[in-house]
Amino acid sequence: MNIFVCIKQVPDTETKVTPNSSGTYIETNSIKWIMNPYDEFAVEQSLLIKAAKPEANVTVIRVGGSKDTEALRTAMAMGADEAILIEASDNLDSYMTAKALKGAIEKTGKKPDLILTGKQAIDDDCLQVPQLLAQMLGLPSVSVVVGFELAGNDLTLRREIEGGTIEIYKLQSPCLVACNKGLNTPRYASLPGIMKAKKKPLTTYKLSDVGVADADMRIKYSAFSLPPEKPAGKKMDAMDAAKQNEVVKKVVGLLRTEAKVI
């Protein structure tokens, strides 16, 4: 069974984002990069399958900058068998990213039985790559998956939609599954795992190696800017029980007369 896990490296959620001086992207010099949190669920799911099916082979693929390869190494330290890095800028658009992933999967010569991804990357928040990649490979896909069962080639997937409602899908592999938080608990990369990962193969490609050209660009960003700062609000002290009623009355009143939201 060939499992491909597509991951992204993103700035840590604690990162304070600052636009770069030309406004074309954010300042990336002092950023701490982490594996996209949703992708950790995808990696874990592949390893749970591998634990049940030892013959399964897990290849983890990432498109992005080559300066740090931590996300790929972490995935291998967690237990993935090999890794592929497609060198590109960290803010390549979704269409080019999906096309690059497709090219890399095809280059391995292995027919994918299952492709796992996170439901979205927390940097550009586009939520496009999983569906685009599935479409390009002619595979069905299910996104925002919080439940996963595999029996033979039969998959039962639970997709979360509005209001916590669950859609249950039944389908057969090959397919693409985009994972959400709640699907599993990602394991830590163990220290022996980190040592072993050193010896696992990491193949590097350029975008042109996997059939992606400048003409494939579909999205252009400009004028990165910080959201406007709100003017300071009103802060009222209600630690004292005597003041509570008065403060609550005042706030409710302001919500109606000043903010006009009630």
Binding site: E70, T74, A77, L191, M195
Partner: peptide, 8 residues
């Protein structure tokens, strides 16, 4: 490798 150990 040391960076990864520390990170973990």
């Amino acid at each position: 490798e040391q960076k990864e150990i520390k990170e973990m």
